[in-house]
Nucleic acid binder design. Structure first.
Lengths: 344, 344
DNA sequence: ATGAAAGCGCTAACAC
DNA sequence: GTGTTAGCGCTTTCAT
């Protein structure tokens, strides 16, 4: 491993020399700390600008803070996460903090572990973890090291904050919407990559689907394809469901991304939406309202969730230690992808 | 700003004490360096495992390396970037390097600057910058600090590597495809957020569109909507184009993401694809083959580009200083969104 | 109000 | 083959 001869960066010492003051003074100006005269402040500011100085983050990290917020996302392919990130970015912009993202998903629990370790190793000041699959004890262990906000998980912990939507309400809205339209053979696509646990949103959605179906006397029509919340998962799951006889007249995909795959599979089978089959998703990612097949979905206001998560994180970094739980009440957004079944 | 009483992390000194050796020995084992006996290695490994030690990244950074690769993306909402990242992740997995992402786009050049500074400040060992808008001199300045690979830009520099596809070929493929189908009133949606410069891929695509139209005697039918490569941009651009009289019979959106918005606008106007209007995109993001409206697009193999970028970055970090330029030849992937015009 | 100096955890000369 | 030690750039007591 050869060492590159990077041009040496400007350090706080350079600034101090240039301004003819001590490094302490420069540091204080940087921190907006008390005990600095106006003249000093001006002198230092000038030197900083002149030299194009920017603090060396690693050195700061060694003294405690990195001004960095780590975001753990399963995968950036899910458009809903873009909504969340927009909210987060809006909230922390101007706070001096910078968000960095790491993908946690796609290769099982080991990858998730590696990704979360990566953020802790990099000494981020706080972590927003979207839809973690690991155990609560692992989350609490991390929370001991780093302020933590967990998004999209039905946990309760005294050590970290939670931001989530009420998936029971959301899933019930979809199933009841489809039932109200006259559907009886309503199928569901779920994600079982992380196993089945009542703290996982995908499990809550699936369980609620089964509960509502049963409550409406449709227990015999329960049909679940357990794949994943991805386009491929939706595609494969739908092919599996379409192969059943009789096939469902409606599909409730647990996530918009999976619903996209469902639409593909249905079209490929020569069927139409909503003519032959109704499709509903979950998340109401901004794109599903735009796509020319307007997808019925459950809105949980990703931007608000991201914004709130950012605020909670900054509060925790600021010293709050009590746990906060922020729950959004989802709403149904009916669009053209759902309609009464052709032959009731 | 209150200091949290994080549980003190295990340091290299703890490991050394526990194993009854020097910190040097531990460090050498960590680096897989020469001059360590088998017995020593085993002892140290055991201590590391027992204590659950993980190196403190910031401290390493101060000595030169962070084992971190920074990825600058305009925005994670673009599904094509997910393809790129999959390639990158595959390439660097197992190398000991970790990718962190930062969004650079959405709020103009200042935001781009802030995002790139953020990575440099964090002392990443290398940067993959996707579709930068800034000047070449700024890129070269960064390349002086950090090994740099630029993706999707028609630059040539001795100081950084470039990964790109031949946008002239790609754009020509689309326009010629549409002309071959019988279209004459072919419109284009471009992105002018970053201005018009021949080094930007969006400009190359737009210029090529105009050139090919002209070469086929269709100069009078040139119609460009300059918005952005986003769903909103495609939507707004298409509304603008549809308002013209006569309206185009085909739309070439410079990116798949914009094509999605175009489909929405067309549908909203009560028109059909490809019956009334053909639509083609660019990027062939994995999702556009899945979506039930199969979009004609230009494939530039994002995964390969990401994988290659990762390799080039590791090479540069390893010491290569000569510049490499890797260009992909794109191919047209015709799907159902393009067809001959209704009334020729 | 200002500055000197210790030390954060790690790596790499350099000694042994 | 192994250990001692000097810093990397910054923040933060603690003097002045």
């Amino acid at each position: 491993m050869v060492t590159r001869d990077r041009q040496r960066r400007v350090t706080i010492t350079d600034v101090a020399k240039h301004a003819q003051v001590s490094t302490t003074a420069v540091s204080k100006v940087l921190q907006n700390a008390y005990g600095v005269s106006e003249a000093m402040r001006a002198k230092v500011r000038a030197a900083i600008d002149e030299l194009g100085y920017r603090p060396h983050n690693a050195a700061r990290a060694m003294r405690g803070r990195t001004f960095t917020i780590g975001v753990l996302l399963p995968h950036i392919r899910n458009p809903f996460f873009a909504d969340i990130l927009d909210g987060l970015t809006e909230e922390i912009s101007g706070s001096g903090y910078q968000a960095i993202m790491v993908q946690s998903g796609g290769r099982g629990p080991a990858a998730e572990r590696r990704a979360s370790d990566a953020l802790v190793d990099r000494q981020v000041d706080g972590i927003l973890w979207v839809a973690p699959l690991c155990s609560k004890s692992q989350l609490e262990k991390m929370a001991g090291d780093t302020p933590l906000v967990v998004l999209g998980r039905h946990d309760r912990s005294a050590l970290y904050d939670c931001v989530l939507d009420d998936d029971e309400i959301g899933a019930a809205l979809v199933v009841e919407h489809l039932i109200a339209l006259g559907h009886r053979r309503i199928a569901h696509i779920t994600d079982d990559v992380g196993g089945r646990s009542s703290v996982l949103l995908q499990t809550v959605r699936a369980t609620t689907y089964e509960r509502v179906m049963t409550e409406h006397g449709l227990a015999e029509h329960i049909a679940v394809a357990a794949t994943s919340y991805t386009e491929e998962g939706g595609y494969e799951g739908t092919r599996e469901l379409l192969a059943r006889d009789p096939r469902p007249t409606a599909i409730f995909a647990g996530a918009d991304q999976a619903a996209f795959g469902a639409l593909a599979a249905i079209h490929e089978a020569g069927l139409t939406v909503p003519g032959d089959i109704s499709v509903a998703g979950y998340d109401n990612a901004r794109v599903v309202g735009f796509a020319h097949i307007a997808l019925t979905s459950v809105d949980q206001d990703g931007a608000l969730m991201g914004k709130t998560a950012g605020r909670l994180l900054l509060e925790r970094i600021g010293g709050r230690t009590s746990a906060v739980r922020f729950s959004v009440t989802p709403t149904l957004v009916p669009r053209r992808s759902t309609a009464p079944p052709k032959t009731p």
